[in-house]
């Protein structure tokens, strides 16, 4: 491939799309063979759902199997929310629904009728960063950036959870108000993996936003 002659310029997303197309072609014969034998697969079931995303009411007609993550990325083209493992293990898909951070990959879009959802796009803009986004930049809280939208959404919600008095595994006294400190943040952020290993800078960024470290 001639990447430097100016003829071909690909974005990462386009390359991924091309890969997906090739994969679809490759499996087609298998699908055909299967449908000739056993009973034909059941057709998708569609359902309507409406919820508010980043302050805007959205109405969707989706296959019932659509996760909230796929509805955000594929139907609403809000690709800031990332798909990492798609099994609730990595936290890249973290969004805030009804004020609580959740794994958007482990919930169905149709289960969110009437909900208010905030994604990374709703927290800040490139011109006007959310304080947590600015702190991640300042403290170098990422390398490749893939887990960052989930980390930022999770971090914003973590400070709210501590403010609301929700204890954690490392809170020494269940009856005392939880504090913002390194050990609390590491415990509370454990559902967000960062394979580049930016953890210590992420903690610094959150401490900075909280004001507990100058």
């Amino acid at each position: 491939m001639h990447e430097n002659d100016g003829t071909f310029t690909f974005t990462r997303r386009e390359i991924l799309k091309a890969g997906a197309t090739c994969a679809a072609v490759a499996v087609a014969p298998g699908v055909a063979a299967k449908s000739a034998g056993a009973a034909a697969p059941k057709p998708p079931v569609m359902a309507k759902v409406s919820f508010t995303v980043n302050g805007t009411r959205r109405e969707l007609d989706v296959d019932t199997r659509t996760t909230l993550l796929d509805a955000l990325r594929e139907n609403l083209k809000l690709t800031g929310t990332k798909k990492g493992c798609d099994h609730g293990q990595c936290g890249a898909c973290t969004v805030i629904a009804g004020g609580r951070r959740i794994n958007s990959c482990l919930t169905l879009a149709v289960m969110h009728e009437g909900d208010r959802i905030t994604t990374i796009e709703g927290l800040g803009t490139p011109q006007q960063l959310h304080p947590m986004q600015a702190a991640f930049v300042k403290h170098d809280g990422y390398q490749c950036g893939y887990c960052t939208p989930g980390q930022v959404c999770s971090a914003v919600a973590v400070l709210e959870e501590i403010k609301a008095g929700i204890p954690s595994h490392v809170s020494a006294d269940l009856s005392a108000r939880p504090q913002v400190n390194e050990s609390e943040l590491r415990e509370r952020m454990s559902g967000n993996l960062c394979r580049c290993g930016a953890y210590s800078n992420i903690v610094e960024a959150i401490l900075d936003v909280d004001g507990s470290r100058a």
Binding site: R101, I102, N103, A157, V158, S190, G191, N192
Partner: peptide, 10 residues
């Protein structure tokens, strides 16, 4: 002691 914050919220 179980799961993650995101999972416990759901």
């Amino acid at each position: 002691a179980g799961a993650s914050g995101q999972l416990r919220n759901r």
